[in-house]
Design a protein around this nucleic acid. Structure first.
Lengths: 147, 147
DNA sequence: TTGGATATTTCATGGTGTCAAGCAACGCGG
DNA sequence: CCGCGTTGCTTGACACCATGAAATATCCAA
């Protein structure tokens, strides 16, 4: 009688889908408030932690390197990011935030606090439970070497 | 000492971000296996439940109606969807899956079982806990009239 | 030094998304 | 019944994201 997926599992899947959809929209909205697209905001956020070669940005974004060229071009055009030579390998270009870019990244991270909002209804204990469950979900299919 | 966000909350936020990123990529990958983009797959999935006017598709996708025109155009071009007149209002066009579209939608839903995979490590009780926590998270900021 | 591998860019192409403008149909207030 | 504002959808212009193939420059190992 039961289909391959029981009702409970189905409900959880639907909920995750809803969370994903909302998170995505709100992320883009937060980025737009700083005149950035979602992809630009993600790259800027990455570079705010540390400069990195184009190649690694592509790996983090799980997209083709040729795509990153354009995104960094636009960020560079706004003076938020700059390309530096890598002293150890003249092929690679290190993308790094400028001062202005770092400021924007910090403000951006601030407005991402929206993500904290939905958690406000959960007690610390519940957050721990949620954290552990999510961690276990993610461990099932470890995506790629962390780094 | 503690910043505005405590460590635990920060961890949960990061985890949710990871879940979102992975879910999205895998969703697109599943769609691509049926020669669909993510947006096309979402629309097809919606229409597989019931036909609906373009306007409502846009509401569900949270995008402009003019955007839906193109997506439905492409689905229609492949014979997966058709536009029907609404007998009660000649302005509206009801988008509905064709038989072929319905088949594709069913197969698509099958390959979305990937979403079940990460849950396989959780017991039914844990799934219930996860469901309840997610539901409460989502209730904090009720998005829009369900309908 | 030669040749294969790697990092980046360029170009062509197609999908997604927005906005403004346009058209047809609805429906309400005279 | 007639206008007239509103609504539903489409079109066109534009920007961005994303891919794949090809070009360039550099690295590195044989």
């Amino acid at each position: 009688m039961a289909p391959r997926i029981d009702l409970l599992t189905f409900e959880v899947i639907e909920l995750i889908g809803t969370v994903v959809a909302r998170y995505h929209k709100e992320y883009e909205h937060a980025a737009a408030q700083h005149a950035l697209t979602g992809a630009q905001a993600r790259v800027l956020g990455l570079l705010a932690r540390e400069p990195m070669p184009m190649r690694r940005i592509a790996q983090q974004l799980k997209c083709e390197p040729s795509n990153v060229t354009g995104i960094v071009d636009r960020l560079e055009g706004r003076g938020l990011v700059e390309r530096r030579p890598d002293p150890t390998d003249r092929r690679v270009k290190l993308a790094a935030t400028t001062e202005s870019g770092m400021e924007t990244a910090v403000r951006l991270r601030g407005s991402l606090d929206f993500a904290r909002e939905p958690l406000s209804g959960l007690s610390p204990q519940e957050r721990m439970v949620l954290r552990d469950l999510l961690q276990r979900m993610l461990k099932i299919t470890p995506e790629e070497p962390a780094e």
